[in-house]
Design a protein around this nucleic acid. Sequence first.
DNA 1: TTACAAACATGAGTGCGCTCATTTATTATT
DNA 2: AATAATAAATGAGCGCACTCATGTTTGTAA
Lengths: 218, 218
Amino acid sequence: MKTKRDAGKTRQQGKRVKNKENTKRAILRAALELFAEKGFYNTTTKAISRKAGIAEGTLFNYFETKEDLALYFFEDELDGVIEWYDRNTRLKRATVSEQLFAIIQQFLDHLAPCEEFIGAVYLRALAPASKLSPWSLQSQERQLRYLQFIRRVLAQAETSGDIPRVGDFGAYAFGLFHLAIVTHWLRDRSRGKEQTLALLDRCLKLGTHFLRKGGWDW
Amino acid sequence: MKTKRDAGKTRQQGKRVKNKENTKRAILRAALELFAEKGFYNTTTKAISRKAGIAEGTLFNYFETKEDLALYFFEDELDGVIEWYDRNTRLKRATVSEQLFAIIQQFLDHLAPCEEFIGAVYLRALAPASKLSPWSLQSQERQLRYLQFIRRVLAQAETSGDIPRVGDFGAYAFGLFHLAIVTHWLRDRSRGKEQTLALLDRCLKLGTHFLRKGGWDW
DNA sequence: TTACAAACATGAGTGCGCTCATTTATTATT
DNA sequence: AATAATAAATGAGCGCACTCATGTTTGTAA
């Protein structure tokens, strides 16, 4: 009897969860299609709701703002890059400069389809008065995972003698650099963003050069 | 007769110009007061117009967007910092690391009152699909002046032997670093932004250390 | 099965930034 | 001084993201 009730309960609760998941997926799918077709700013939330087959207000039960909705397209960006790195065994044998170049390039490739509205989304992360404290926490978690990933890459280069010990601060400094590169990338109008890639290459070579010649613990 | 007509013409044209200037000042003044009182996002363009004593639509004859209006509060930021630097003769005898620290700190002090909406304004500069091409040009001009200023500071440090030659690229790289610091500053919740200042100090010392030990031309 | 509670969907309504056809004020011409 | 030409001000109106009182579906307890 107990199992039967539990089973029934589970089945029924599962229906709600399933509905929610379906709706969320429908919204994200509709949004993705419309963003790709008409762009972020030319797509109205009304149109997304219509395409997803829900009421206008329902969309805002799932996403606080339109920008929040867009945010979901970056969600697995970090995981994707980490996974790509871990699979790429050949890359791990390259110099740290080449590795970091490839990593940032990979990030930029993931970001490319969202170039139009990335500013609108990054804004939310930067705005200090943002009412979106959950996103803030979410952001911190993401940043931690990012830093741990970079730390891992750098640690390998440290043990192999490619660079001196840079510690946690090295990873953090690289994060700042990464951010600067993204802002440069956003403004880069050259074909294939080659200007950004050239800048990236130069900065990384310069950085590792400094690390080898100048040391870090000072 | 010619002079008389020209004089009259000038006087009359001057009236239009004067009116425009007055209106613009009235808008900026009203906006500044309201932003300071209620914040950027809680101030409506309607309220600004009312306080400035003009119609709602008139505001948009002077500023394309509300964000554009906010942009004007940064306008003389750069000039202010350059002027401050040139006047501060004592600072010029300090190390380049100390000078750059003071310069960025000065920028941040100017930015502080606008912290709430700086993201909304920076966004416009970053958004690649921005329809505001004039602002884009304006931005480039500002950036050029900024780079020339930094170049000047670095050049002095070069000739005094404080650092090796870093050239124009050195100034550009510092600009990227400056941007990264601003983004860090925006998210910094510590008292008096001391965390950012500590980071800034550490990065600058590290940077100059590298430059001296590792050189630049490689 | 029935009554109740909680989660969820709904869409008319709200306030915002911004537009535009029209009116008013300024300058040029006769 | 009268008229035409042009610049600037106006405010009703628009489309948008987002809200909220209400209705509907799903889960719980008797």
